[in-house]
Design a protein around this nucleic acid. Structure first.
Length: 572
RNA sequence: GUCUUCGUAGCUCAGCUGGUAGAGCAAUUGACUCUUAAUCAAUGGGUCGGGGGUUCGAAUCCCCCCGAGGACACCA
């Protein structure tokens, strides 16, 4: 038995009383919902005659009882509406039980009911459903957090992040803006998918369980397949599989993919996250910049009806064209230093001068990337393309068509964070092999993130992949921006959390076998001892004192314990 | 992983330099036939995250642990 709070006990008792009255608190039959709250609120005044016989269903989120009349607020999946209950309308005969007992005493905040009635406007001018009948559809056994709102002011908002993320269902019930954000997220994905489908690209699915992981520099999650008796990894990216499909002759493929990276967590990182990766044959990275601009601008329009989006303090404007800087230009812009001609020692010196933290394992490319990350990225609020990256950091990107040491790669940065990453894809299999081998070499230098050589991927390239533009765009990051969310946990329904500790509860019998008299078992639980295993960590004197103290407090009519008895349980 | 802030009733919070745990809402009982943070009256509800220590006495001070937030690190 778990300990129930007073309110939970009362609600369980109510369930019993309803059942005893012949009312099923959890009925099986369909309820004939014919109307939505939002539709009634929006359209009632245009044509009241259409709303003389409505059926709504939803959760009771507020209640005001005035004797023989009451107002209840019902919430369904699109909003809330006030419902008016009048005793003599609910109970037209002499028997007033249905109103006085079932409605007033046996309904609680959080219960789900169905209501049939007609719509009218109260004296205060609020569109309201006048209930003629109601049906209990689900009793709620736990009290709901009570959030009250009036004129944009909120009282007792349910804000504890731990509870909000662990019990997202509660968060969704009581915090309407949370629901809004998730609806926007889905709209974002739908808009992107529509855009890609309109262009004629094919949505595909590739393996999540992979024998080798690749396509990004991150540590993977490792698992094991029993029948094959082999290690499998959860994918960190799907790039290498999608490119195989381009080799296979698909000229435009994309996938919305859950990827898994075994790295630290923060307000920008969850162990599993969503990316959309797109590969289009016969295109290059400049073409891809145009595509990203067009697609993201369309998403902003779909979600906000405007290219401008409020994000924290800033208004971000996704209107095309976005600013474009090469990486060297961006660094020169923010530091005043032109590093484009520098070699490793000079870069190292410059980084130190700029206060950029570096270590010995960093090569030329990593140093440039660090300087950019430290000095530029956070300042790029409006959407900006940063292009032409050092080759060392980009083993899958094609060599720059004219500049030595660079690759044709870009990232879009927005609100100080990377939102996408794209290249003219490397399709020279000899160069690709060399680059991947260099990554392995870097691995030996202490860089844990370097990749494993994927021979089949190289074999595919050797058959010939057309020149291809590729893109990875972070759906969670984009959703954060588009919903003005401070943290990734606000755009994931169920962000990863440490598990709640669960207390093991022993049965009465187990305690009794341990020598605890039956009437003391409940007292022990009250004291916080849930199982006999906890005995060994307890001080017998303290337990003895606490239990007899509780006996007094609970006014129990049983003999006081002796210290020897308590010692006996603990030693057993 | 490091630093830092936090954890008190179902929810939101107060509780000063240690002295028997408080409020509002929610709950229970009662009054009230158009209220809307409904109102009015009464009542109940707490291992003060867990464990240890200091003390005559700990929600409060100290240490350890658990959980969460934030910052940093990591994450091309």
């Amino acid at each position: 038995m778990m300990e129930l709070s007073e309110q939970e006990q009362i609600r369980r008792q109510t369930v019993k009383e309803l059942t005893a009255m012949g009312i099923d608190p959890f009925p099986a039959a369909s309820y004939p919902v014919s109307d939505k709250t939002c539709d009634i609120l929006e359209n009632f005044e245009k044509d009241p005659s259409q709303y003389q016989n409505v059926n709504i269903a939803g959760r009771i989120v507020n209640r005001r009882i005035m004797g023989a009349a009451s107002f209840v607020e019902i919430q369904d999946d699109c909003g809330r509406i006030q419902v008016y209950f009048k005793r003599d309308d609910i109970c037209p005969t002499e028997d007033k039980t249905w109103y006085n007992t079932v409605f007033k005493k046996h309904l609680d905040l959080g219960d789900i009911i169905g209501i049939s009635g007609y719509v009218f406007k109260t004296q205060m001018g609020e569109i309201t459903v006048h209930a003629q009948n109601f049906t209990i559809l689900t009793k709620s056994l736990r009290p709901l957090p009570i959030v009250r709102e009036k004129d944009d002011k909120t009282w007792d908002a349910f804000t504890d992040p731990e509870q909000r993320y662990r019990m997202r269902y509660l968060d969704l019930i009581v915090n309407p803006h949370v629901k809004e954000a998730f609806i926007k997220r889905t709209k974002l994905v739908n808009t992107m998918r529509d855009y890609l489908n309109e262009k004629g690209y094919l949505e595909v699915e590739t393996p999540i369980l992979q024998p080798l992981y690749g396509g990004a520099a991150a540590r993977p999650f490792k698992t094991h397949h029993n029948t094959l008796d082999m290690t499998l990894y959860l994918r960190i990216a799907n790039e290498l599989y999608l490119k195989r499909l381009v080799v296979g002759g698909f000229e435009g493929v994309y996938e919305f993919s859950k990827d898994f990276r075994n790295e630290g967590m923060s307000r920008f990182h969850n162990p599993e996250f969503t990316q959309m990766e797109l590969y289009v044959a016969y295109k290059d990275y400049f073409w891809m910049m145009d595509t990203v601009e067009e697609m993201v601008e369309r998403i902003a329009m779909a979600l906000h009806g405007s290219t401008q989006v409020q994000v924290g303090e800033n208004i971000i404007d996704f209107k095309r064209p976005w600013k474009r800087y090469t990486m060297f230009e961006a660094i020169e812009h923010f530091t005043g230093i032109d590093i484009s001609e520098m070699e490793e020692p000079e870069l190292r010196e410059t980084a130190q001068k700029l206060g950029v933290p570096i270590d010995d394992s960093m090569g030329k490319g990593k140093l440039i990337d660090e300087i950019f990350g430290e000095k530029c990225e956070a300042h790029l609020i409006q959407p900006t393309f940063i292009y032409d990256y050092p080759v060392e950091m980009s083993p899958l990107a094609k060599k720059h068509r004219s500049r030595e040491g660079l690759v044709e790669r870009f990232e879009a940065v927005c609100n100080g964070k990377e939102i996408c990453n794209a290249y003219s894809e490397l399709n020279d299999p000899i160069d690709q092999r060399k680059r991947l081998e260099e990554q392995l070499e870097l691995g030996k230098r202490g860089d844990e993130e370097s990749m494993v050589l994927d021979e089949d991927f190289l074999r595919a390239l050797e058959y010939g992949m057309p020149p291809t533009a590729g893109l990875g765009i972070g759906i969670d990051r984009l959703a954060m921006i588009m919903t003005n969310s401070h943290s990734i946990q606000d755009v994931l329904f169920f962000p990863q959390m440490r598990p709640e500790k669960k207390v093991v509860n022993d049965s009465d019998e187990t305690f009794i076998e341990h020598g605890v008299p039956a009437q003391w078992v409940e007292v022990l639980r009250k004291r916080g001892v849930h199982n006999v295993a906890e005995f060994k960590d307890l001080n017998p004197n303290k337990l003895f004192n606490d239990l007899n103290g509780l006996r007094k407090k609970m006014k129990l009519d049983i003999a006081a314990l002796k210290l020897e008895e308590v010692q006996a349980w603990i030693e057993k």
